[in-house]
Design a protein around this nucleic acid. Structure first.
Lengths: 220, 220
DNA sequence: CGGGCGGCGGTACCGAGTACCGTTCTGACG
DNA sequence: CGTCAGAACGGTACTCGGTACCGCCGCCCG
């Protein structure tokens, strides 16, 4: 048979889909159109991808599995490290296929159905992180909320940096993610959920000195 | 014509849909089934609801409009109040139709497509809160991240309480929401992104006294 | 050479969602 | 009282995403 294109089928389908979505828009492109341009039958398209949307979306199943694995291989005291590294894993998977990621972003930004799809995927990551975080915390209701908030923060931080990079507003996404995650960790550092007190103050002196002074003042 | 049922069409459609989803499951129920049981034509169903999913979902469009309105009528110093009240607005709208909300939750929990739909709706609220929060903050990148994190936390806190109530784990959802929101506010209280210092301490004395003591100790 | 076997294409089908048209009922107005 | 406008409804036909099934071809292995 003469096909003219020798690239793997899945690849050709992705290219065809991205091209067509750019040209005519997402809704105006049928599954037949994509299959035709890729030089395959419609059946073959749905053999390789579960749906029309799946064609251009990243392989979240594989990514989530990778994240789960990274989280699994961590002891209690390296938990935070595991989370930050797992998040970086996701970010880098986007950065690695920069071109396609940006094209996808341009399309998903305009199509409501695809936006919703993306959001649903994000929720799966958030769920994963929530369960992991809840795992190394107590079973108290306050802890459950804390885990929920932390997971949301982690995912939001990632998405914030990711979107900045997609919009070419972030030169060094890995570094920005590092900073954002540090921000998140700091945010929750002083929140144990019990009767602790949080005092915010502005002072130019060395933190150590300040802490010593405060400790001295509260001694009784 | 003899219809036997005099209730408004929209109401009958919702009841029919919930019943059928319980009996046969969501995918096993066609739009025709719902329309038939409600005693109307299929066309009428899609005249009242944009999709089969929409039949059982709350009227997020109206709710979001209400939230937006509540947020709009707030000055800079009542911003936090506006957010908490807006969130409570959403929670109460569920509590008001407790029965239906719980039936919906039971179904949504089991059907992936509906879960995704719900998540997408939540994202719309989150976006609203993010834009509002970003509005009364600076334009710096750090502020953008902060707004993102706060919005995520607010929405997560709400959902946490809502789900607890839906599962009958929360006797007084309004009070729990109040507590959860206070938790969120406290979480971000000491995070301005600049050089502020956050001190966490455990002390049983009155916070006012502690603050005074600290202030005294740091005077120079 | 023969017989699995995996990848592919085609056809037929289901169900959600849309467009369009004809009907009925109601209420206002001359 | 007759009529006309408009809203709500039902039915038909169509598009398109997604599934099931079957038959074809090429390839590898014994």
């Amino acid at each position: 048979m003469v096909t003219g294109t020798a690239a793997p089928v899945k690849q050709r389908l992705v290219d065809a889909a991205l091209d067509l979505f750019d040209e005519r828009g997402y809704e105006q492109t049928t599954a037949d159109d994509i299959a035709d341009r890729a030089g395959v039958g419609r059946t073959t398209l749905f053999r390789h991808y579960r749906s029309k949307e799946d064609v251009i979306f990243p392989d979240h199943d594989r990514l989530i599995a990778a994240v789960r694995e990274r989280l699994a291989t961590s002891s209690a005291d390296t938990a935070i490290l595991a989370v930050t590294e797992a998040v970086r894993l996701v970010l880098l998977s986007y950065v690695e296929e920069a071109d396609r990621a940006r094209r996808r972003y341009a399309i998903t930004s305009r199509v409501a159905a695809l936006r919703d799809r993306e959001i649903a995927s994000v929720a799966r990551y958030q769920r994963l992180f929530r369960e992991f975080i809840a795992g190394w915390m107590g079973p108290a209701p306050a802890d459950a909320l804390r885990a929920e908030l932390m997971a949301a923060a982690v995912v939001s931080a990632h998405n914030h940096v990711l979107r900045r990079w997609l919009r070419r507003e972030a030169a060094d996404p890995a570094a920005e993610l590092e900073a954002a995650m540090a921000r998140v960790v700091q945010l929750f550092a002083g929140d144990s959920g019990d009767g602790s007190m949080v005092i915010v103050l502005r002072d130019t002196r060395d933190p150590e000195q300040v802490v010593t002074a405060v400790r001295q003042a509260l001694k009784r």
